[in-house]
Every structure is written in C-alpha cells, then in structure tokens.
Amino acid sequence: MYSEKVMDHFYHPRNVGEIEDADGVGVAGNPVCGDVMKITIKVDRESETIKDIKFKTFGCGAAIATSSMVTEMVKGKDLTLEEAMKITNKMVAEALDGLPPIKMHCSNLAADALHAAIEDYLKKKRGQET
C-alpha cells in the first residue's frame, strides 16, 4: 500500500534524534490519533537559515516516513526560515510519491511540526529582544 520511497524512509529513517541545545522545538499530532512528531532545529542567527534538523516520531509507517522526508527537504539546503515555512504537508507527501488517502490527514503532519519548530525559534528570539 505504500510507495517504495515511503518504505525506504520507514526502514531507513534519516536524521533521527533530538538536537540537545535546539533553537526551536516543534510538535504536531496527538497520541489519541496515534501520531506524534517532534522536530528540533538549529538556526544560524545571522543568516536565519536552518543548519541542522532532527526528528522523533511515534506513529505508523507514513508518520515516520514523512518526518524523515521533511528533515531531508531541509537538511543541508541552507533554507531560510521563510523558505522552510513554505514546505507544506502536501509537498512532503508528493516527495514520497504519495500516501494512501486515509494517511493524508492523520499521518501527514511533518511540515506542521517543522513550522511549529520555526515558530518556537521566532518566539524565543522575540522574547530575547524585548
């Protein structure tokens, strides 16, 4: 039922873990539905680009694969925060050659977790400035 790309990311997830001194932490999903994704990012303050990204996910094959894919879409790409905010859940699913329809809602939240991590960074930054 899953594409080869989904299975590849599920069996060999990229960038698993938590950045210890992360600049931003984002969580999406909830345990009731059975999918929770946590993304941690390291941001270069000068250029406002994402320097490192890691994920941890509780969930099904699609949840793990989308989390892994979103980190790959960001890592090593020197994306600005603005550019990273433009990554959507739909783009993540497309990068994995699609997901079964039932998974599109519940398990395709990796971009939301990324956005939450960026917002967390921005909030902390605003807190420091004031």
Binding site: V16, E18, V27, P31, V36, K38, K56, T57, F58, I64
Partner: peptide
C-alpha cells in the same frame, strides 16, 4: 522506541 519522542 529509539525513534519515539515518548521513550526518552
């Protein structure tokens, strides 16, 4: 569990 955010 190593991938799960709840385990740690």
């Amino acid at each position: 569990r190593d991938i799960s955010p709840f385990w740690k």
